[in-house]
Each structure stands twice: as C-alpha cells, then as structure tokens.
Design a protein around this nucleic acid. Structure first.
Length: 620
RNA sequence: CGGAGCGUAGCUCAGCCUGGCAGAGCACUUGGUUUGGGACCAAGACGUCGCAGGUUCAAAUCCUGUCGCUCCGACCA
C-alpha cells in the first residue's frame, strides 16, 4: 500500500522526496506534484538520499584523535580553516540535543537564558583590566579595528558584557540574586588549535553568571550549578569526574572542572584511591615520603661533577639519594626574575608559582639569561650567589633536609651538605611542586592515581573581581554600597559532542548514546528498486514518523555493505533493516549499534524496543 | 613565538632530487553484469600543480617572496 497521498503543490525548487520515489527507478525524475508527508515531521526525519554530509571512505590526514577522524569521515564536520569547522546537519542535531539538556538543567537550577553580543568593544575589557592580557600578553582574543577606527573584539568569554548589563539592572539588595546564561559561539585565537572540535578557535559554549549579595548567596548559586553540571554529565552518559581546579586567567577563588575521562584528554587529573579527593594536576597538592635526616650538619663544599646533567646521574655520582638533590629553575615573571627550588625528584608546578607571584605570566628564563645570572652553563643553577633582586621560592619539601645538594652556579660544580640558615637564608616556602601519580593523598593515607581528562565544564566562584573593577554594586538594607558577588559557569557544548564520541566509538565508527544521537534509528532499505520492497520500506518509514521516532532513512541505491558500513560509521543507536527477505516474513531486522547481534522482529516489537532504549537512556 | 613539514582531480597520494604532453587508487557520470557487510567489466568527465614574481627555448619540478594547512617545542637546572 502506497503511503497516503493527497494533492499538494510543493513549491520548493527541489524535487519532493516522494516525487523522486515515484519515478524510481527510472533515474530521470521529472517534477511531480505530491504531498510530502514527511514535511509534517520535518525535524524528526531525513532521507539519506537528500542528506548533506557524505561519508568519506578514506581517513582524512592530520587527525590525531578518534573523535576528530570519525566526525570528518561520518560527515559531521568539515574544516574551513585552522580550528574552524562547519557543523553539518547530523552534528547540528546533536549539538541541539546537548544544548536542550543544558537548557533544561540550567532552567531547573534557576538560571534565565539570554543572548549577548559576540562582537564586543575594547572599552569594557579595558575597564575590567583584562585587555592587555587577552590581546597582547596571551593573544587569545581576536581583536581588530572597525571602519570608524575603534577597536573591537570577538568574545572569548562574557564576564565584561554580563557585568555591564547587570550593573544597569541591579541597584538594590532587592534586585538580587540573579542568574543568567547563554549558549553562543565563542572565539579564541588558540595558540595551537587541534583535535578538531576539542580545541577549536570557534566553538559553542554555554556560559552562566550568578550575581549575589553575599558569600552565602554565591555558595548557594555555585552549589546549584555544581549539581546541575552533574545532572548534565549524567544525562549525556559521560564517564567523568568533577575535580578541584585552578581558576586561571578568569580569576577568583574556588573552582571545579568537569572532566570526561579519555586517554586523549589534554589534562591530567589526580584522584585518591581511598577518599573522594580529585583535582586537576595543576591544582593538586600531595604529600611525599620524608626521610630520616643526618644528625649533624657537615661542612658545605663544592663537588666537581663534570657534565652531570639530571638528578639521577648526579645522585649516583655523589652517592646520595635523589631526594637530597635540589633543582633550581629560573623564571621570568613579568620582568621579575624568580628562582624556584624543588626537591630533585619533583617538578615545578608553574601554575602554582604563577599564582603565588600574583598571576603574571611565567616563563622559563632563556639560556643566555641563565648564564648571565648564574655565571654558569645551564644545569648548574643554585640558590647561593644569585644576583640581588632574584626572588627565591622553595617548595616545602626542599625544607627539613640536612646536608642537601644544590647547583653551585659554577659550571660542573654542585654544592653538597648545604643547610638553610647556615649557608643561605631561608627562602619563601610554599607548595610549588607538581603532584604526581603515586604521591600520597593530601587528605588521607591513600595514594594518588592519574588519568587523562577532557574538560567539558568549569565552574568558578569569581567573587568581586569584575564587580569591583566595573562597579557593579548594590545598596544593602542598611543603605551601604556593596559589590555584587559573582560566579561564572561554563560548558563546552561542541567539545561535549567530541568528548562523547571519544568515549563512545569502536573501530567501525561512532556509538551514540540515544539521548544525544542525531536520530534514534537508521532505517536501511535494501533493494529498493523492487517496487514491493520500496513500498514496504516507505510505509515503515511513515509509520516510524507517525510514532514520533527520529529516523534517518537510507533510501539510497547502494549495496548492502556500503549502507551497513555507513550506518556503523554514523553510529545511530538503533538500526532497522528492511529487505525482500524481511518483508516476506512480515518482519524487520532490529540491531543496536552497541551490540553485535541483529534480531528479526515484527515492526511493533522493533518500535517498542526503540522506545525502551530511549526511555532507559533518559532515566539515568 | 621558535623549529620542522606539507600545499598536484572531490578524497588519499605519486611525480619534484636529475626541467621536456598532468598521473594512480577511491569517489563521480553512462551502459552492462551483480545485489545482506564498502562488487565487477567497459566507456567517460574532472586540474590556474596554493598564489605572485624570477631563471630557462621550456617550470608541478630550480630560485625568491607570499598565503594557507599541519606537526613538534619549554620536562632541563
């Protein structure tokens, strides 16, 4: 039985899809006038014969991650320039679904959606004090002159704009709290765009901002967002961890990152094997073994250790344990030279050093500069005898050692039996070492484990950084003027799509979780040039539409192998195959992408299974 | 920013060293045979060799510049 056809003038310049079907298989369609029933379910269904985003058989070069390669091959993205991509129809649907989940959870957490300009002016960024850092220093913001000669930029984030909007809105404590969010394209001139959507120069982000009268309000807003982020990650089905994080250039106090676990992740996270401690490596602290120390200080002397670079050979040569050696690294912190000492078996956590120094960008000193300051080749720097004006920091594990080693600021020489207080003044101590896998948890007796993660969400307590700088203030009940307390909360929407693929794929393609799959079902029609099969497949297609199931119908005149391979690549969660063979038995073939085996069932049964699959995924 | 590599058909690439008609596979078009896991036969279409300049009788090839894309990089004190 042909699907119901009513007279309808389709004014589109394209052939109506049924028109094309009707002239099948003559292959020279003439324009005919028909109802396109799928028009009523426009956003539910698509015929693959009309779909933009062909699959590629060959793997494009220059792809480093599975998600990047699969997105290109399966027709989800096309690159326009470095770190700039078109989101083709399939990905666009997935992005909409992720956005919808985010919208629902943000609304449930009391945030109100708006949309701010991506095109911003220099003025606000100068006012907040971030212009220099974002343009000249880090150069992460696209900035340019408009035709009137004033400087404009494309927003990498929206603290300035939102603070400007809300300061016009908020006058009294009665105007608080407020919480707004937007889902928008952001621009960052990344030093190195890579991994497709993972680190792009143009990407979709959800950013939310909270405005509260006091710390308690901020706590509540932050907690609401934290819970919303957990719900979002759970609904998408991520394997993830929320970790303590550094708040970086945005500024502020507390912050957490939501990290999707993946070997290709750019961040290292550390978590305790006993308690719930978890942190970004940049932020993590840890405890180290401490060792019994010598009872007496021995005289300091300079030991000749020719060409000994690296603490392992040095320790072996000097016949001392590695923990007695000391690395002294020289940095330039916005013009101030800084020496940082860590125990020989440790590395410097540059983020912590930079934060300790007030946030100025930290760079390792150039070799010429090191020679100039130490009077020695690179590799022999030490804290004794550095020029006045060099600020000396030391990790706390450098302290407490008796008779330690350090560089002598003299090529090939190392000072041994060095002791603070006697041979040099005690420097500024702090937590400056990089925590590592195997270190002891800072909170309990457990050990730290490491994993790589993709940062898909980040929540910050900003405090008054922007409200002070930009004068976003209110009058409290006593008539006192106070700065609004702010928080900001970001989610990388397009990055989430990439992270999901990174976590859900096999060697044949993507395996979407139903809740963010572009369509629920891939309907594969085989041998459609047979009019009986064509009719059967069409009526199943119509039926799925009537059941409000999102379906991509592969109605192309291709061989079975190509269709199945494409279906595996595109990765819709369920596949229904219709062919002469199945129709003769009055059945269809149903297969889940995540599972191997296909089963022959009636159409009603297949529909029921799809419903169950979708329901199961939204319950979680 | 520093270092390196690559730009040739829609895609993946060969040709460049040693200058001499622009190539292959896949994809595409047509016809035929096939038809449930990326088939086969035959015929065809497809190019400003990134761009600009230079050398040369002659440049994809050599030289200079330029634009684009990609990779690597501070693990050493």
């Amino acid at each position: 039985m042909r699907s119901p056809i009513v007279k309808y003038l389709d004014a589109t310049p394209l052939f109506g899809s049924l028109a094309r079907i009707n002239c099948w298989p003559e292959r020279r369609p003439s324009v005919q006038i028909h109802l396109r029933l799928d028009r009523h379910y426009w956003n539910l269904t698509m015929r693959q014969s009309r779909h933009v985003g062909k699959t590629l058989r060959e793997v494009p070069k220059d792809t480093q991650t599975a998600a990047h390669a699969l997105m290109l091959r399966a027709g989800y993205i096309r690159q326009l320039s470095a770190g700039v991509y078109t989101y083709l129809p399939l990905l666009h649907r997935t992005l909409n679904k992720i956005s919808q989940i985010v919208r629902e959870e943000m609304a449930a957490a009391g945030s109100e959606e708006l949309l701010m300009p991506a095109l911003q002016s220099q003025e606000l960024w100068v006012e907040s004090g971030r212009w220099e850092r974002y343009t000249a220093v880090d150069g992460i913001m696209f900035a340019f002159k408009d035709r009137r000669g004033s400087t404009a930029c494309l927003g990498p984030t929206h603290e300035e704009v939102v603070t400007d909007i809300l300061r016009q809105e908020i006058k009294s404590y009665k105007d608080l709290p407020r919480n707004v969010f937007q889902i928008q394209t952001k621009f960052r001139d990344e030093i190195r765009p890579r991994f497709g959507l993972m680190r792009a120069r143009e990407f979709i982000m959800k950013d939310a901002y909270s405005f509260d009268p006091d710390e308690a309000g901020l706590e509540a807003a932050y907690e609401a967002m934290r819970l919303a982020y957990h719900r979002i990650c759970r609904r998408i089905g991520f394997q993830y961890r929320a970790v303590e994080a550094d708040s970086g250039a945005i500024g502020g106090s507390g912050s957490q990152e939501f990290m999707v676990l993946a070997d290709t992740g750019e961040d290292v996270i550390l978590f305790c094997d006993r308690c719930d401690f978890a942190a970004n490596q940049e932020q993590a602290s840890s405890r180290l073994e401490e060792f019994p120390q010598d009872a007496e200080m021995r005289p300091m002397e300079a030991a000749l250790g020719e060409g000994l670079i690296g603490v392992e050979p040095l320790a072996k040569f000097l016949e001392i344990p590695v923990w007695k050696t000391t690395k002294t690294l020289l940095y330039d912190s916005g013009g101030q030279m800084v020496a940082v000492m860590v125990r020989g078996d440790c590395d410097v956590n540059e983020v912590k050093v930079a934060n300790h120094l007030g946030g100025a960008p930290l760079r390792l000193a150039a070799p010429e500069r090191i020679r100039e300051m130490t009077g020695a080749e690179v590799g022999y720097a030490g804290p004794i005898g550095l020029p006045a004006g060099v600020r000396i920091l030391a990790d706390r594990y450098v302290d407490g050692r008796v008779n330690f080693e350090c560089g002598a600021n003299r090529t090939n020489y190392h000072n041994i039996n060095v002791n603070f207080g006697r041979d040099l003044p005690r420097p500024e101590f702090g937590d400056f070492k990089l925590a590592r896998q195997g270190d002891q948890c800072p909170r309990c007796a457990g050990r730290l484990q490491a994993a790589r993660g993709i940062e898909v969400g980040h929540i910050f307590k900003l405090g008054t950084k922007y409200s002070e700088a930009m004068s976003c203030r209110y009058l409290d009940a006593q008539g006192q003027s106070r700065p609004v307390i702010m928080g900001c909360y970001g989610i990388g929407v397009s990055r989430m799509a990439a992270a999901c693929i990174e976590q859900n794929h096999d060697d044949r393609g993507i395996i979407w979780p139903p809740q963010i799959a572009p369509y629920h079902v891939h309907l594969i029609g085989l041998n459609l040039e047979d009019p009986v099969v064509r009719e059967g497949a069409e009526s199943i297609y119509q039926r799925l539409q009537q059941e409000r199931i999102e379906v991509l119908f592969d109605d192309r005149p291709l061989r079975a192998g190509e269709k199945f391979s494409d279906a595996d690549l595109i990765g819709l969660p369920a596949r229904i195959t219709v062919s002469k063979r199945t129709l003769e038995k009055g059945q269809v073939e149903f297969k889940r992408r995540a599972e191997g085996q296909a089963v022959q069932v009636g159409l009603d049964e297949a529909i029921e299974r799809i419903r169950q699959m979708c329901a199961a995924s939204t319950d979680s």
